[in-house]
Design a protein around this nucleic acid. Structure first.
Lengths: 204, 204
DNA sequence: TCTGGTGTGGATCAGTGTTCCACAGCAATA
DNA sequence: TATTGCTGTGGAACACTGATCCACACCAGA
């Protein structure tokens, strides 16, 4: 077989892995299948990425990069261009859901342990933090504008994110007893924002 | 080897599977390991449960049964014995977190696809609904007492559950940037309840 | 007492992640 | 230009997995 130029190797492997994952699913994401799809030798995967987990980590990392872009700008509309701070947050979370629903298997690799024993690396966690930053910025603006309670935006953003994530997890795994899942998601987001926008009694 | 009495087979297999899962993790949960731990032939697992997925489903089902019991009564204190309806919900969710943190791997099998391709069966989903019912009852009481907005308790309960689940997912997978995870969980629960206890503006 | 269901031990199969190997091609050096 | 070292390729091999098949033996009910 022709020898693949070294410069293309990682790209081709990563692209093939992403395509296999999204098209067929995590179960079909075997090293041999990736090598075949990338038209690359099996050994090359081990040369470039250390193991399957490392390859998955690269897939997850690329996913977070794409997620950050999707949050920042969708359809040519920068999130920051939305004036109302609350609308800003709501739109950001709507984009978040669209990413998850549009890329369910990649979302699974990014956030769940779709493969037993696999866990995102600290480096990829750093990339994930970039995605979170988009929401933190929006929350900060809302706090500054007096639309949300004055509190730590990093904490508040993670509260909202976690709630949204939980709803999406149930939606993607088809667990739950809800008729309109999109509306359910919006309601949870709205409820969190509502709960964060008026003074809370001291928690017990 | 001595022949295992038929009546004990399923119990022994299931117990061994649960113990292996909780003690070592999902990665060590192989059919051969389960057979060895249960002191049972490999074939017997296939005779009693159809496949590994079916065995996992049984593990998950038993987990939901236990979760329901843990929610209903903990330390001899029935959840229903708590008078204040909001305290009732808060305590129920605290018990939910204690179950998840105390049984992280079982929680993983019950709610996540810790094994690729595995999904809870519809029958087990029904058992999971029993767990949800505990929260639905508490929410219903709170609505009846005028402590939460008058709305569908089944939907409201799932909103709270999903939010709590999202926080726990991040906590169990060690994702997130929060100092005090227990307090973070409580805050999300409190915020959801606060958001559900005062009239909401019409969502956009 | 016999007989059918079923638990046991063992082999076997395809497929997995991973490693090792001989070989060959390409690039930078002498 | 000639040589050398890195690395991609193809293939075998390893231990392990879920799953199936088999002969055999045991036990309960007819």
């Amino acid at each position: 077989m022709a020898r693949t130029p070294s410069g293309e190797l990682e790209t081709r492997i990563l692209d093939a892995a992403v395509e296999l994952l999204t098209e067929v699913g995590a179960g079909a994401l075997t090293q041999r299948a990736v090598a075949k799809a990338a038209n690359v030798s099996l050994q090359s995967i081990y040369n470039r990425f250390g193991s399957k987990h490392d390859l998955l980590d690269a897939v997850a990392n690329a996913g977070f990069v794409e997620l950050t872009e999707a949050l920042r700008s969708e359809g040519g509309i920068p999130l920051a261009s939305i004036e109302d701070p609350i609308d800003n947050i709501v739109e950001g979370l709507a984009r978040y859901r669209r990413f998850a629903i549009g890329n369910p298997r990649r979302y699974g690799v990014m956030f769940d342990a779709d493969v037993p024993g696999f866990r995102i690396s600290d480096a990829t966690l750093g990339t994930a933090f970039e995605s979170l930053t988009v929401l933190v910025d929006a929350v900060t603006s809302a706090v500054d504008a007096g639309r949300l309670n004055p509190d730590d935006p990093l904490i508040m953003a993670q509260m909202i994110w976690a709630a949204a994530h939980g709803v999406l997890r149930f939606e993607l795994t088809e667990v739950g007893f809800v008729a309109d899942r999109a509306a359910h998601y919006d309601r949870v987001v709205a409820t969190m924002l509502h709960g964060l926008s008026t003074p809370q009694p001291a928690a017990g």
